[in-house]
Design a protein around this nucleic acid. Structure first.
Length: 603
RNA sequence: GGGGGCGUGGUGUAGCGGUUAACAUGCCACCCUGUCAAGGUGGAGAUCGCGGGUUCGAAUCCCGUCGCUCCCGCCA
């Protein structure tokens, strides 16, 4: 080893020991005859002192040293003199009197600061020099947190008899779900592998194989457009269990998530145990299938009351079966008319962006005898107003917003408003983590375009036993044994109990319009496997990137992935994707169709 | 596929139709023996993402394009 101690590990009890350190120069403070160097390694920072009078040769070398140079030093750890202790540094009680220095590697001046946080650093620049970006404290912290989470998962599951098993990346395309990344086969001209969107089929086959409890921390690939919480390749904790029902899976994951939050982070769980909402409840109250329950803004259905008002938008909508929902915003009753108008305008513009035509409001007075402000107040007689306020749980000075439209738009409006208001009204405690289970999903969704039922989760999700009889008669009413885990407004896991009986599977296939021959073509290996003694089984797949993002308090998953891709799915550091040689294409039996413009050759 | 935001010395910003493009920081040199975002003095460093247009005059206005990003669609 080129060092005896980690820079960040030095403490007062190392005083007077001789140590050898190696790392990067974090910062230098040259005072002429006395040079201070902050030496950084993964564990932290130690202050080096170089004194011209004591060690002229070291001083001479140290004069040339710049930030990010890699150096090795030998010296004596000293308790810092009185009044020179740096309480902001874990190593701040000591410093190292250097008596030998070796420059292991000089460094160019980095294109951005390694030794400080820059607020709006251009992401393209960070990506191009990702190895430097990753040197920064924030990124080191995130990546190390990610490791701690993964380590916790492995030990938690191993202790509960789970076996980690790898599954292939070169697998088979399935037309369902997301767009596949395809890999051409050289030895099978004209055929392609697909990178798995998840190891769904394989993990079920591992249950058929009798492993009973499987997990894998595995990369998944989906060729869809990116978002802050979506990358073309992302990591799941994939797991599957045999001889379990839903409760077993939920219990396990609840224990795992609780353990991660409490043992690995300094964050606080809002709910223990995790609350459970049906999908319907989640949508009706929060407008989202992944509601953020760190704050309790709730949409209240006031359709019945609003339908009796004189406001024609409401009455017409209610007649057509469209809901009217109200959200109570605590507080701004004391505002001036212009403040209220501005506040309302902002919210209304926001909701228009998700398809709303308008946003009605009432400002509730602070005094008992005050007047309700807002244009729709006059359409509600006093009696009805009181009924409304009762239903919504109004407090004096509240601001009520009302949205009414198709159910889908109302949900979108409620979701958008909740997210916006939470930030606006500062309702979010960044230390808090709020998990919530979403259950009772419909098994199928009606596909308007294709005029058929589509599986809302995937083909192998088992129906609720008590709904089995409805499968042919009322498919829309059949609920699946499916569950999602939401956290702080993100979906962090999804899973289900699977079908393990061939006849049920075939009924599903026929319902979604999959011919037996088709099904055999696409899933023959699965159907065949299921005939050889399949245990009842189910599983779940938490998204590791999103989970770590939330725990790290980061706004997107790129901050917790060492080498992420841009929104255009590019790697700016390596320059991927890149053109390939004609010979490579030829070997793969691939001819390119004419492109509008020839792709630039990789520089 | 569609809509929005951003792009000015290495970095982060200001300038938003009119002198020599400003500030902070970084970088370079010199001074400095108790600093820790060290300090002081001096200096170098920008075809204002790229292309076209409008104008007497464009970093500034318009069109296109590229890159990053947010959102809708998409993501079983």
């Amino acid at each position: 080893m080129l060092k005896s101690h980690a820079c960040g590990a030095l403490r007062a009890d190392h005083a007077d020991q001789e140590v050898t350190l190696a790392g990067w120069v974090h910062r230098r403070r040259d005072q002429g005859g006395l040079i201070f160097l902050d030496l950084r390694d993964r564990q932290g920072i130690a202050q080096l002192v170089i004194d011209e009078e004591q060690t002229p040769d070291v001083h001479l070398k140290a004069k040339d040293v710049r930030n990010e140079w890699v150096v090795q030093v030998r010296g004596i750890v000293r308790q810092r003199p009185e009044g020179m202790i740096n309480p902001n540094l874990p190593t701040g009680e000591v410093e190292v009197e250097v008596n030998q220095i070796e420059i292991l590697n000089a460094a160019k001046t980095p294109p951005f600061y390694i030794n400080r946080e820059e607020e709006n650093l251009d992401e393209a620049l960070r990506m191009r020099y990702r190895y430097l970006d990753l040197r920064r404290e924030r990124m080191q912290r995130n990546i190390i947190l990610r490791h701690e989470v993964v380590r916790y998962i492995r030990s938690f599951l191993s202790a509960r008899d789970f076996i980690e098993i790898e599954t292939p990346f070169l697998f088979k395309t399935t037309p369902e779900g997301a767009r596949d990344y395809l890999v051409p086969s050289r030895v099978h001209p004209g055929r392609f592998y697909a990178l798995p969107q998840s190891p769904q089929q394989l993990k079920q086959l591992l249950m058929v194989a009798g492993f009973e409890r499987y997990f894998q921390i595995v990369r998944c690939f989906r060729d869809e457009d990116q978002r802050g919480d979506r990358q073309p390749e992302f990591t799941q904790l994939d797991l599957e269990m045999s001889f379990v029902d839903r409760e077993d899976v939920l219990d396990l994951i609840e224990g795992l998530m609780t353990g991660i939050v409490e043992d690995v982070t300094d964050r606080e769980l809002v709910y223990k145990p995790f609350p459970r909402l049906s999908l319907h409840e989640a949508l009706e109250r929060y407008g989202s299938d992944k509601p953020d329950l760190r704050y309790d803004l709730v949409a209240i259905d006031v359709s019945e009351i609003a339908g009796r008002s004189g406001f024609s938008v409401f009455t017409t909508n209610v007649e057509q079966g469209k809901p009217v929902k109200a959200i109570r915003v605590p507080g701004p009753g004391g505002w001036s008319n212009s403040q209220i108008k501005k506040f309302h305008k902002e919210l209304e513009d926001l909701t228009k962006s998700v398809g709303a035509k308008g946003l009605a409001y009432m400002a509730v007075p602070e005094e008992e005898d005050g007047e309700v402000r807002g244009p729709i107040g006059k359409f509600f007689p006093t009696e009805l107003k009181l009924e409304l306020f009762e239903a919504v749980g109004v407090q004096p000075g509240d601001f009520l917003v009302f949205t009414s439209d198709t159910r889908e738009i109302v949900y979108a409006v409620v979701d958008t408003l909740r997210r916006h208001l939470a930030v606006e009204l500062d309702l979010i405690d960044p230390k808090k983590v709020a998990f919530v289970w979403i259950i009772n999903f419909p098994l199928f969704e009606w596909n308007e375009d294709e005029a058929r039922w589509d599986p809302s989760h995937h083909l192998f999700t088992a129906p609720m036993r008590e709904d089995l009889a409805l499968l042919e008669s009322e498919p829309g009413k059949v609920r699946g044994q499916q569950y999602d885990l939401a956290c702080n407004g993100y979906e962090v896991a999804g899973g289900s109990i699977r079908i393990h009986q061939r006849d049920v599977q075939e009924r599903i296939f026929s319902l979604i319009g999959l011919e037996v021959e088709d099904a055999k073509q696409k899933f023959g290996h699965m159907l065949e496997a299921f005939e050889y003694g399949t245990p009842p089984h189910g599983g779940i797949a938490p998204g590791l990137d999103r989970l770590v993002m939330i725990l790290a308090g980061e706004p997107n998953i790129r901050e917790v992935i060492a080498f992420p891709k841009t929104q255009q799915a590019a790697d700016l550091m390596a320059g991927a994707p890149s053109p390939v040689l004609p010979e490579q294409l030829e070997e793969l039996h691939i001819a390119l169709t004419a492109l509008d413009e020839a792709p630039e050759s990789s520089a």
